[in-house]
């Protein structure tokens, strides 16, 4: 019969929202293919979290509660998931595409010789198969994939579906796993450094991307518009990776997550990791010469043009309007 196994993730002492999103996906798959939903909670002193999750979408929940699992380690997580897959007779394993999820999920697929699909924004059951939808080429193209493999591991993009909110029937069961002989050893988590650049408080952010082309163009073209609007300057990841601006300027899932009143994206194509960091802005203006850039999907106003013509013109017009 098999089952659908949700691999939960604990962050700051609570089960992440993304795990409840997996519960939504699992419940919908279960309705279509009749397989029961089961869950796995791994950590130290996590019994209460597990019983709570069991009743809020998780269903019957396996618990690996061990001091050795207090912090994430790929080997601990991998051993726990493999034991849970066997105990739950799981044929579908759902994981969130977070830094821990992408670290461990492909390992599980290799260990089980399973089909693997990552970072899906939609998963549907159709007969004996699963249908997956995901972005490729940094969001420029979508892919629809399918698998009927006897074992499937898939990761979901956090935030792609609503979290499950209803109640569920289910109890918890302790799962004993040998977690000794760990290869990768957790040392510590270093919190993000405070840098004095807090984009989250800015009303207006003007960000530049790879399209800005060179580091000196930021003070010449992007910063003047930010100044004229009384806002702050930001950047996308490629700009920071290239060393054009330091990391504190980075907007995105691995930088600052912002929601200003106005976000102006200049020469930013709109890779998902950037969109996650700014799509909840109140109003978004995107300027990019590529009409197919994914940034236009989240923009309120789009301008397909050369930013080196439009941005200085806009700066001048803003200054003129201020008088």
């Amino acid at each position: 019969m098999g089952s659908i196994l949700i691999v939960t993730e604990i962050q700051n002492g609570a089960i992440r929202e993304a795990s409840f999103e997996l519960a939504s996906v699992a419940r919908a798959l279960s309705e279509a293919n009749g397989k029961p939903v089961k869950s796995l909670v791994v950590g130290s002193g996590v019994g209460d979290l597990a019983s709570d999750f069991a009743s809020k979408g998780g269903g019957d929940t396996l618990v690996v509660d061990d001091a050795l699992a207090a912090n994430y380690s790929v080997d601990v997580q991998s051993a726990a998931i493999q034991a849970a897959v066997a105990a739950a007779d799981a044929d579908v394993v759902l994981v969130s595409n977070t830094p821990t999820g992408w670290d461990v999920a492909p390992r599980i697929a290799a260990a089980l010789d399973a089909a693997f699909v990552s970072d899906c924004f939609k998963i549907e059951a159709e007969g004996d198969s699963l249908q997956f939808y995901r972005r490729i080429f940094n969001g420029k193209i979508n892919a629809h994939l399918s698998s009927s493999a006897p074992k499937i591991v898939a990761t979901m993009q956090p935030g792609a579906v609503a979290a499950f909110e209803g109640p569920s029937e289910g109890g918890t069961e302790a799962l004993a796993v040998d977690l000794s002989g760990v290869g990768a050893k957790f040392v510590e988590v270093k919190a993000a450094e405070a840098t004095g650049i807090d984009l989250t408080k800015a009303d207006v952010i003007v960000s530049g991307g790879r399209g800005v082309g060179a580091p000196e163009k930021f003070p010449e073209v992007i910063q003047p518009l930010a100044d004229a609007l009384g806002g702050a300057m930001g950047a996308s990841r490629p700009v920071v990776d290239a060393g054009w601006l330091p990391h504190p300027y980075q907007v995105g899932s691995s930088g600052q997550v912002v929601s200003p009143k106005l976000y102006v994206a200049c020469g930013i194509s709109g890779a998902i990791q950037h969109l996650v960091g700014m799509k909840s802005s109140n109003f978004i203006i995107a300027i990019n010469k590529d009409p197919d850039a994914p940034i236009f999907e989240v923009a309120d106003i789009g301008v397909v043009a050369d930013l080196f013509e439009v941005v200085p013109a806009l700066t001048a017009a803003v200054l003129a309007a201020k008088g």
Partner: peptide, 16 residues
Amino acid sequence: KVKVEKVYVPPKGDTA
């Protein structure tokens, strides 16, 4: 184990 059914250009958002 995974088959590509189709790749396609994402539907354009109608907000912009």
